[in-house]
Design a protein around this nucleic acid. Structure first.
Lengths: 124, 124
DNA sequence: GTGTAGTAGTTCATCAGATACAGTACTGGT
DNA sequence: ACCAGTACTGTATCTGATGAACTACTACAC
C-alpha cells in the first residue's frame, strides 16, 4: 500500500487499525484456546466477531501466529476427522502455553497501565 | 514438545518488553507534547521515568518517531537557542497533531477494551 | 591534561510482526 | 455450472522497534 501524497491529515483515517494489536496476537489466540480446542478459521471468526468490526486480525496474521505458537510449543495442532472432506486443523494449548498466557496477561496489565498513565487517562 | 524459542535459553522471560507498545509510540509522544513543548531527550527521559523501568522506549525509536511526526505535520521542530553550544531540538504539537492525538486516544480506548474482552479481563 | 560519564542528537542495518495477494480444496445454494 | 463461503497455506513486502555506532559538548574527577 502506498501513501498517495499522504500529507493530508485525513489520509490515515483508518490506517491505525490492527497495528495497535501488534504483539498481542499470540496472547489473544492463547486466550481463545484457554477454554477449549478450536480450529484455525474458528479462532479467526471468534476474534472477528469479538472485535465487532473495529479491528480485524487478518487470516494471514493468525495463521502466522499459529505457526509461531506451534513452533514454540505453546500449542499443539491436530487434524480433526471430519471425514466429509472437511480439513480443520485444531489447536490445543499446552502447559507451557498456559504459563506464557498467564505471564502475557500480566504483561498486558502493565502495558495497559503504562499507556494509560502516559496518555493521562487516569480518570478523565 | 519444546518450549525454548531457540535463540536464547533464558532470554524469553522478559523479552516481551516494548514490542507491546508498538504502534502507540507516536500517540505517546503527542501526549507528552500536548501540554508544552519539549526537546527530544527530555521526552525520552519523561517516558523512561513514567514507565518506571517496566518498559523503555529506546532513543532510536523515539527519534524515528519525531521524524515521522514532523514529516506528517503533526509536530513542528525548532532549535532552542541555548547559545552555550547546547543543541536541543524542541518539538511543538500542531493542530493536526492534536486532532490525531484525540483520535488515537479514542482508538486506544477501543483497543484496550478489545484486548480486555478477548483476554476476558472484565474486572481485573 | 586525560579520562569518564551524562546530555543531546543522528544514521543505518537488521529483525519480526502484520498484511496484501495468490493459490488450493471442499461445500452448499441457486 | 457457477459462486460464495469455509478452511488452510505460502510468499513478498511494508513498517516500526532496536542495536550499534557516531558526533559533540559539559562536568566532574584523578
Amino acid at each position: 500500500m502506498q501513501k498517495e501524497s499522504g500529507t493530508t491529515s485525513d489520509g490515515g483515517a483508518d490506517a491505525f487499525a490492527a497495528d495497535l494489536l501488534r504483539g498481542h496476537t499470540d496472547t489473544i489466540v492463547l486466550g481463545v484456546l484457554r477454554r477449549e480446542d478450536r480450529y484455525g478459521f474458528e479462532i479467526y471468526k471468534a476474534i472477528r466477531d469479538a472485535t465487532g468490526g473495529d479491528y480485524e486480525i487478518k487470516e494471514a496474521t493468525l495463521y502466522a501466529a499459529y505457526r509461531r505458537l506451534v513452533k514454540d510449543g505453546l500449542v499443539e495442532a491436530y487434524w480433526g476427522d471430519e471425514s466429509q472432506g472437511g480439513r480443520r486443523k485444531y489447536y490445543r494449548i499446552t502447559d507451557a502455553g498456559r504459563a506464557v498466557y498467564r505471564r502475557n496477561v500480566d504483561a498486558w496489565v502493565v502495558t495497559r497501565r503504562t499507556i494509560d498513565s502516559l496518555l493521562d487517562l487516569k480518570g478523565s
